[in-house]
Computed example of a mutant assay.
Amino acid sequence: MDLSSGQEALSLSCFGTLDIWPAANVSIMVAIKLSHNLHTPMYFFLCGLSFSETCTTMVIIPRMLADLLSETKTISFPECATQMFFFFGLGANNCFILAAMSYDRYTAIHNPLHYPILMTRKICFQQMMASFMVGILISLCIVSIIFSLSFCGSKTIQHFFCDITPVVSLACDYTVLHKMALLAFTAFVLVGSFILIMISYVFIVSTVIKMPSAKGRYKAFSTCSSHLTVVSIHYGFASFVYLRPKNNDSFRQDMLMAVTYTVLTPLLNPIVYSLRNKEMQIALKKVLGNANRFITQSVNKRVMNF
């Protein structure tokens, strides 16, 4: 079964950012890996988030580029199911990593003396793996429901990748029961993880307001500001696409928003963390400086050899 995929004008609008976001996320991961002072739970989760978001975008971008270079712009049935599986699995993983990061901030602020015991490397790794496994299971359920449907009539996907709404709109036996099941799974990921984040921040706020020092309160809130900014961006766009009521204009609106959360959001997240974090700024300057020296030396050697 071949499905027509992609809107050329919309895909072209994303092309200008493709050379920027991989470098941004890779720089974050390399800076955390090479800087020993960043080997803490907070940066461990940030590294995991950057890696997961890079993979999420890689699920979309190569196919979109292939559509740009192809006249047919077709995607096979198995390829569509695979793309959707990895996209939603990694997307759900991002949500639960953000929830783990909020718990990490709560533990650091509420129990600073016991923080090294409560957030060991093993516990952080277990939380990361739990986020990944939950994401994969939820995605498997979503894809199983969608691709068990019968597709008839038009085979043109009104989108630049295999998203839920454009694909199920092609099904001839899509019922209210299917719709409620898909809504339940997406709500579990978005609303469930968001509730966990809000619970953590309720306890964080209650702890911070009891601090006698204004400087201590400012420092505590500043450690959470970057995370809150990323959470607002991530959940704002995702909720608009997957939780709002649909109408006749939904496809076009969803495509416009999809450009944001598949291309721009993975670029904004490392920028937010690097701009609002001095430790990250110092680490990134070292990494970029070393990379610049390496490139300069390589170019000079090539010129001399020539």
Rank of each mutant, 00 (worst) to 15 (best):
S4D: 06
Q7D: 15
S11I: 02
C14N: 07
F15E: 06
I28G: 00
A31D: 04
T40Q: 08
P41N: 03
F45Q: 00
T54G: 12
C55H: 00
M58T: 08
V59I: 11
M64C: 11
L65E: 05
D67N: 04
L68N: 02
E71F: 09
F77G: 03
F77K: 06
C80R: 09
C80L: 07
A81I: 05
F85N: 04
F87A: 09
F88W: 10
S102I: 05
S102C: 11
D104T: 15
T107Q: 11
A108L: 14
N111C: 13
L113P: 01
L118D: 06
M119G: 00
K122F: 12
F125D: 05
Q126V: 14
Q126M: 15
Q127S: 08
Q127I: 04
M129T: 12
I142N: 02
I145V: 15
I146F: 09
I146W: 03
C152Q: 15
S154F: 02
Q158S: 12
D163F: 05
C172A: 14
C172Q: 14
K179R: 15
A181G: 04
A184H: 12
F185I: 10
T186L: 15
A187P: 07
G192V: 01
S193V: 08
M198P: 02
I209Y: 14
S213G: 12
A214Q: 12
F221H: 10
H227R: 06
T229E: 07
S232E: 08
F237H: 01
A238S: 14
A238I: 08
R244P: 01
R244D: 07
L256P: 00
M257Q: 05
V259G: 00
N269F: 10
Y273D: 02
M280C: 02
I295T: 09
V299E: 15
